[in-house]
Design a protein around this nucleic acid. Sequence first.
DNA 1: CGAGCCTTTGATTATGGTCAAGCGCTGTGG
DNA 2: CCACAGCGCTTGACCATAATCAAAGGCTCG
Lengths: 243, 243
Amino acid sequence: MTLRPTQACQHCTLRQLCLPVGLPQDELWQLDQIVQQRRPIAKGAALFTMGAPFDSLFAVRTGALKTVLISDDGTEQITGFALAGDLLGLDAIHSSTHPVSAIALESTSVCAVPYSHVDDLAGRLPTFRQHMMSVMSQELAQDENLHVLLGQRTAEQRLATFLITLSERHRARGLAANRFCLPMSRADIANHLGLTQETISRLFTQLRKQGVISLHTRDLQILAPDQLRNTAGVTITSAASSA
Amino acid sequence: MTLRPTQACQHCTLRQLCLPVGLPQDELWQLDQIVQQRRPIAKGAALFTMGAPFDSLFAVRTGALKTVLISDDGTEQITGFALAGDLLGLDAIHSSTHPVSAIALESTSVCAVPYSHVDDLAGRLPTFRQHMMSVMSQELAQDENLHVLLGQRTAEQRLATFLITLSERHRARGLAANRFCLPMSRADIANHLGLTQETISRLFTQLRKQGVISLHTRDLQILAPDQLRNTAGVTITSAASSA
DNA sequence: CGAGCCTTTGATTATGGTCAAGCGCTGTGG
DNA sequence: CCACAGCGCTTGACCATAATCAAAGGCTCG
């Protein structure tokens, strides 16, 4: 729990994406007061573990994580991938305990925001309160889209949709939408989409052969975005899902 | 949008389950001020429709609804079933538009809670604000469990888990946990679980033959709860999921 | 440079989907 | 009150998608 000197949200490149969204200047500094930066998490290490007591929300500053739910029969489910600007821990408020583990996919740094302070701010700053409600609401709507993906779509459609979603999330961060690095393994993608590693590998090969993507190890290029959208089958309503 | 005389949350049999949970007496009457009761929704009719503007949350008073997301290729996904005491509309806060339709499965009555008032109360009453955050957080955690169900479990496990979840929700309402009526069709169950009507029908037959349940039309009895839990494979962490 | 993990590819299988037909409630109108 | 229409449910036969099992190639990192 080593703390580093707090770095101002005001100067953060993620302020258009992260908690500060829409906050007026005079409220922003109040957020700055409560945000703590932590030392980086190594690849494979946990930011928090399933079952651990909840006391802070986390905002990803750099890097990427997966959130994993392990059932008592040992099966794992990756419930999502968090990229820079994403918020982690909202699912833990209810039970005061993290229902998932958050594992770094690469060296990752986060800001910690003690939840008691979040609640306090939510009471005092209407804009901030509304933003928190909005963020949680958005996640609920995204989960509904994920439900559609797992319930109604073929393996091919799931993977294509996943890639488009990732692409949109990069776009929302001002990064290249058609060329980026996959921070997660094929097995991780498979698990998240309710498929197997082998199926994902075969589908990648297929998309490569069709000239839709180029993929070397984890360096992805979307060569034919329209065709990818086409194989996804149906457009996703909200652009940048945290799936 | 015919309004009826407001009926007090204080005297509602659902106050231990619904929005009033944990509210001190002096805050409860403030909630009463903003809750409106509506005229019943007929079976098959919509409480709200996907794409419609959001302005109120709804609490189910009696009856049951399904929430349905329709993709632009026409495929439908039932994202959940709402029973008495459940809250609807939290997923609409972000976009100010309902991402799903809510369709009554039987004649259903609801309370409407204008969201502007909810936000106002959340600013003034810490207990209420914390409760709202907790409810949304709980739904996020439940969605993660649903993700596991759709991503990792067999058809048999999904149905068994679904029945157990329904049973627990009845128990939480003080109703019989081992005998109740299914308000939804086989096709609805199938759709929600990412399966087909035929598979659900076959599984029900199988469970009947095994003596685990008795099911006549929609009248369900769980004869062997332990065996049902066993076929579900893994215990669900949080008891009463709104799945 | 080598160990181990990640990825790819192939062969085979199984789970659940699709297509099809028939039964049985339920509710309505004669 | 009964007949019938229509929908919901069940069951069967067959099929397809993706899982499983297996093996080999290719990064990455110590």
